[in-house]
Amino acid sequence: MAESLPAEGVPVRTLRSETLLVLALSLGASAVSALISFIGSVTRPGGLKDQAATLNASYAPGRPWLDLAWQLFGIATALVPVALVAHLLLREGAGLRAIGFDRGRPWSDLGRGTLIAAGIGSAGLAFYLVARAAGANLTVVPESLPEVWWKFPVLILSAVQNSVLEEVIVVGYLLRRLGQLGWTPMAALVASSVLRGSYHLYQGIGGFIGNMVMGVVFVLLYRRWGRVGPLVVAHALLDIVAFVGYALLAGRVGWLPTP
């Protein structure tokens, strides 16, 4: 029996291998790393809330220019899988516009993304505080960079990098490929959402559940709008507020947990 082909004319076996390779080079590898980190945390003496998960740390303490070079290198290389996805989608003749990551609707994307961030941000913070108090989450330290001139620009760039990488791959690309591979919409939604939760396991059970729920919401919105643009905006705003907000408020307000 001949191997079935999707509309783009690429064999299903090739698409399956391609998808696994993209994930292995990006968020799939992050999920495995997060799982190993989580196992290490739960098997370490003491509760999860007494441990810390640091997101943006110095690569070269005491050497600001070298540190900046490493920060920019890390941000740039983390986006290579997105460039790979863009290349693979160009093979289909559409590119990133096939998943709604283009400049076609900038104001709509910005407005929708801002509304999503406003709705999810407060609920996400409340869930994190409750999960940590219940002992289901590590203390998340969004940044521990030195007080140098490039601190806030790097935090913003890091937030944008996170949002582009995650939404392009775990929503737009993955849902497109799973659909072409014959997965049902519900199965694809579960796979995307569980993957999102999995690479946040390093934060604890709370990080896994909270991000999985966020993944469900993002998949439903993507299917409604057909664009990852608003999701990238929302995710970037959430991370910018988390990173910059922590830098400004840590140690100055009593409700924000610190190590």
Rank of each mutant, 00 (worst) to 15 (best):
L115N: 11
P142Q: 01
R112D: 10
A191K: 05
L231D: 02
S122I: 15
Q203R: 05
A191S: 09
G207Y: 01
T54F: 06
V228F: 01
G229D: 13
L189D: 11
E8F: 13
A53P: 00
V130C: 03
D109W: 07
L129M: 02
Q71D: 00
A134W: 09
L90S: 12
R91F: 03
P64T: 03
F73H: 09
A123V: 15
S58Q: 10
E18W: 13
G119T: 03
G254K: 12
L129P: 00
V22Y: 13
Y199L: 08
L129I: 03
Y173H: 01
E3W: 08
I36Y: 07
V190M: 09
R196E: 04
S193A: 15
L68W: 10
G251L: 02
G215L: 08
G100A: 10
S4I: 07
S37E: 09
A83R: 04
G245S: 08
L189W: 11
A159D: 00
I169V: 10
E143W: 06
G119V: 03
A123D: 08
V171T: 13
D67P: 05
V154P: 04
T77I: 14
Y246W: 14
R16Q: 09
V194L: 11
L220M: 06
F152W: 15
A94G: 14
T77K: 04
V12C: 09
D239W: 01
V148P: 01
G197C: 15
G28C: 06
S122K: 02
V232K: 03
S17M: 15
V244P: 09
